[in-house]
């Protein structure tokens, strides 16, 4: 899985144009996050995608020449911090399940956001692989509903996009 970050013009249609090029080259975008920067005319977009490196490099060159794309970079996994947030609602009618759920949430330094007789909703963040493991653990408790934010990432130290 590769993580790619872009700076793009914060305008209608840019997301469409970027994702359209991934579609054209036959790549399935695994996750995508977008948000404006401190300069609201610019957005940062982070995409994770499973692709062979040669085709991906060519795709990034093609993205780079798009008028609305300011900068493109494939992030080096060893020099990048990647984070994702998960909202998950677990079915916890059974007191044992409730105890298990709280243990896993605390183990991942998660936050309990909402609670009633039958449910616990938690916010958990971490590397996407940690979230995968967390979800594997709580699966037996019963996932009522969940939503993942998609991966966002920044390079370490002096490296910038």
């Amino acid at each position: 899985m590769h993580t790619v970050s872009f700076l793009v013009e914060n305008q209608p249609g840019v997301l469409f144009n970027v994702s359209n090029l991934f579609r054209r080259r036959g790549f399935n975008i695994d996750s995508i996050t977008v948000g404006a920067l401190e300069d609201p005319r610019v957005s940062r977009m982070t995409i994770t995608v499973d692709a062979d490196p040669k085709t991906l490099n060519n795709l990034l060159d093609q993205l780079d020449k798009m008028v609305e794309v300011i900068r493109v970079k494939r992030l080096d996994p060893l020099r990048t911090v990647r984070r994702e947030m998960l909202l998950v609602k677990l079915g916890t009618r059974d007191p044992m399940a409730r105890e298990d759920a709280l243990r896993y949430i605390n183990g991942q330094h998660g936050l309990v956001l909402d609670i009633d007789e039958e449910h616990i909703m938690a916010e958990v963040s971490g590397e996407p692989e940690e979230l995968d493991r967390f979800l594997g653990n709580v699966k037996s408790i019963g996932i009522v509903e969940m939503s993942r934010s998609g991966v966002t990432a920044l390079e370490k130290g002096r490296l910038t996009l």
């Binding site: 490099n57 060519n58 020449k65």
Partner: peptide, 8 residues
Amino acid sequence: IDRSEIDK
């Protein structure tokens, strides 16, 4: 002139 054509 188009970098994305190189090695494509």
